[in-house]
Simulated scan of single mutants.
Amino acid sequence: MIRSRRFWEQRTLHPVARLLLIAAVVVLVGVAVGFIVASGEFTRLDLLAIAFYAGLAAFAWRPSTAAYIVMLISSIGVVFTGSGGDLLELAIALSLVTATCVAWVIIAHVVLLGALSAYVATSSSTLTQGGIYAIAGIAVIAFLAGLAFRLVAARETILLAERERVEQDLEAIAREEQERIADELHDGIAHDLTLILFHARALPKQPDDAARQLSLTTIEDSAEQALQSIQSLLSLMRDTATEGPESHPTRYDGNVVEAISSLGALLNDAGIPTRVTAPRTPLSVTPAAERVLTETAIEAVTNIMKHAPRSQSASIDILEHGDAMELVVTNLAPSSTTPSDSPASGRGLKRARQRLAQNHGELESVQMSDGWTLRATVPAPVDETH
């Protein structure tokens, strides 16, 4: 820590240390004023003493400026009065300089103290024999005291930074948990609730008993699936397994081809004629990419039923392009549909775009004059056998 450049940056005094310093300066000024009143005269030594104390007080706000003032006044006092007291004060002030100032100011203070000590030692002074060693000892003690204050301040800074980092990590964990819950709500419940709403609205308009029975069955199945999804969500929030049967967050746990076939049948049952095409051979994509294609198809179909329930037709296609796999979902909307009803918009597709990006894929939504088209593309794995 001591070897780092950041350790020797300028620092401010701790608020408590600042108050103690101001209190000490007030006491020193009071003593100086008492001596002035007792002697009945105001000398240049008194002026230098009060100026020196003002320099000490400046360490509470402007450490570098205070260090210059202290060094200047002490130099004047030593050179023009030959007072060993000024030298002693300069040695004591080294503690404040070490605690607050940058490295080169500390070095300048030490060099000045050494030069003035040598000057006093080689000239007539009021220092007693061996007094120069006492000044050196006091300077060492002051330096160590200032270094100790700097270490405490640096450690406090590190602890505060660590606490801030921990708070940021906890906030990130909380946001991630919120996103997980939002994903569970959207993926596990919104789709089923959309089906329930769609068929509940269509139920009074069904032309025969068979169509009404289909809507009732769909509502029942979707409600049961939504209940299981809620149980899964509660398990996620409590971070423990819920009692009862195991829940399944989605009914499309198979591959993407099976999923789009089920989704096509769902749209057909909802009265939207839908064409589904997919390769007969297994898809050459990773399980993660296939899962995100399935999620994108679910989102697109849900949006069609939610935002364009009167669509004239729809299509869901899986296309292979050699180095990529493409999911294309298209719906033909009636001319009365407004752009705000676009099934190619919403937060769900934004999340799908993010998930595709994590798998190096892309999502494109295009609004046309007679409908909307969504294209989700993921790269096929590179064949490393060649």
Results as ranks from 00 to 15, higher is better:
Ala99Tyr: 02
Ala99Leu: 03
Cys101Tyr: 02
Ala108Phe: 06
Ala108His: 04
His109Ser: 15
Val110Glu: 08
Val111Ala: 14
Leu112Cys: 05
Leu113Ala: 15
Leu113Asn: 06
Leu116Asn: 08
Leu116Thr: 06
Leu116Met: 07
Ala118Tyr: 11
Val120Leu: 14
Ser124Trp: 01
Ser124Met: 00
Ser125Lys: 05
Gln129Trp: 09
Tyr133Lys: 00
Tyr133His: 07
Ala136Ser: 07
Ala142Ile: 04
Ala142Cys: 08
Phe143Asn: 01
Leu144Tyr: 02
Gly146Phe: 03
Leu147Pro: 00
Phe149Val: 12
Arg150Gly: 03
Leu151Phe: 13
Leu151Arg: 13
Val152Arg: 13
Ala153His: 10
Thr157Gln: 15
Ile158Leu: 15
Ile158Trp: 12
Leu159Arg: 15
Ala161Tyr: 03
Ala161Leu: 12
Ala161Ile: 05
Arg165Leu: 15
Gln168Thr: 12
Arg175Asp: 13
Glu176Gly: 13
Glu176Phe: 11
Gln178Asp: 10
Ile181Asp: 00
Ala182Cys: 01
Asp183Ile: 00
Asp183Met: 09
Asp183Leu: 11
Glu184Thr: 08
Glu184Met: 11
Leu185Phe: 10
Leu185Thr: 02
Gly188Glu: 07
Leu193Gly: 01
Thr194Asp: 11
Phe198Tyr: 08
Leu203Asp: 07
Leu203Asn: 07
Gln206Gly: 01
Asp208Ile: 07
Leu216Asn: 03
Thr218Met: 05
Asp221Ala: 12
Ser222Gln: 00
Glu224Gln: 07
Glu224Tyr: 01
Ala226Lys: 00
Ala226Met: 02
Ser229Trp: 05
Ser229Val: 06
Ser232Asn: 09
Leu233Gln: 02
Leu233Val: 12
Leu233Phe: 03
